[in-house]
């Protein structure tokens, strides 16, 4: 029963955060400079009436609170509005693109985590300072490389450009993981276990990782948010027709209906990922 109560409480909290987040996103877009403008305003062929009509296209969005409430009502009825810049229903745009983004984010996260875990495990097992330094330098190098340059390099090597996401996520995951593992490895009970002859693999799998599972899960939740945010510039740079590219193009066009929808999606993913991580960590908590 308490599990269901906990779930229900977290779900309600998540919904509130998502709705508040959606509104805050709408406010940010509405009051950003350039809202209500359109590139067509520079087209010398357009008459004064046409220009006025272009300006009026966003008039319904000016009262942001009422617009947001109305948008939510439409959403509950199954519609997400129409994109001004792409002249298509937002729901259609999201359906066409979300699969692509989910796939590349999932792939990149899987690769980043697998490589990070492997390197941390290898460093732990071998106690090799040169290996550790190499990994630190490699992740430092990736942190210093612009995502655009990484994407270009990948394309030069005939690899998919979206793997630049791995370069964004991996160094952060690896850095945190290696510090967490390193700090936990210096705890007295680990030292004692090693002194008793327990193998490094067993130590890592049965003693170190369980001790830091909450942080790992938190890092997992956060890395999803990292990857989703990084997907925006990477997709825009590589011309991948995912949600990230949609978000970037809509941001440049100040396309409010699309931006609210995308923001809600990102916020929902982030909240659910982090809440899920917390839930898992809590459920496996040992009694104090």
């Amino acid at each position: 029963m308490s599990l269901w109560r906990t779930l229900a409480k977290r779900l309600i909290m998540a919904v509130i955060v998502i709705l508040v987040g959606g509104f805050l996103s709408a406010v940010l877009v509405r009051y950003a400079p350039g809202f209500g403008t359109d590139e067509r305003q520079l087209d010398a062929r357009l008459s004064a009436e046409s220009l006025q009509a272009i300006r009026d296209e966003s008039s319904a969005e000016r009262g942001i609170a009422s617009y947001y409430v109305e948008w939510l009502r439409k959403m509950l009825r199954g519609g997400l509005g129409d994109s001004r810049s792409m002249q298509k229903p937002v729901a259609q745009l999201l359906m066409e693109r979300s699969g692509i983004t989910l796939r590349i984010v999932a792939e990149s996260l899987a690769i980043a985590w697998m490589v990070a875990l492997f390197l941390v495990a290898a460093t732990w097992s071998t106690h090799s300072a040169p290996l550790e330094k190499t990994c630190t330098t490699a992740s430092g190098l990736l942190l210093c490389l612009p995502a655009g340059a990484v994407a270009l390099l990948l394309i030069l090597l005939n690899a998919p450009g979206y793997l630049a996401l791995v370069a964004v996520v991996f160094p952060k995951v690896h850095r945190y993981l290696s510090d967490l593992v390193g700090a936990t490895g210096r705890m007295s009970h680990i030292l004692a276990a090693r002194a008793k002859g327990i193998s490094e693999h067993r130590l890592l799998l049965w003693h170190v990782i369980p001790a830091i599972r909450r942080e790992i899960l938190a890092l997992g939740g956060v890395s999803i948010a990292l990857a989703l945010n990084a997907a925006i510039p990477v997709e825009a740079l590589c011309g991948i027709p995912g949600i990230g590219q949609l978000a970037w193009q809509s941001a440049l066009a100040r396309d409010l209906p699309v931006l609210i929808s995308v923001s809600l999606l990102v916020i929902a993913f982030t909240v659910l990922a982090n809440s899920g991580a917390d839930l898992l960590a809590d459920e496996r908590r040992q009694p104090a």
């Binding site: 909290m13 956060v222 948010a225």
Partner: peptide, 25 residues
């Protein structure tokens, strides 16, 4: 702690791009 988690989730996912535009403006 719960409030902090909510604030952090929002901080991770809000489109700060527009806030930066406002700062520039």
């Amino acid at each position: 702690e719960r409030m902090a988690k909510a604030i952090i989730d929002l901080a991770l996912s809000l489109p700060w791009f527009f806030l930066l535009l406002m700062v520039r403006a």
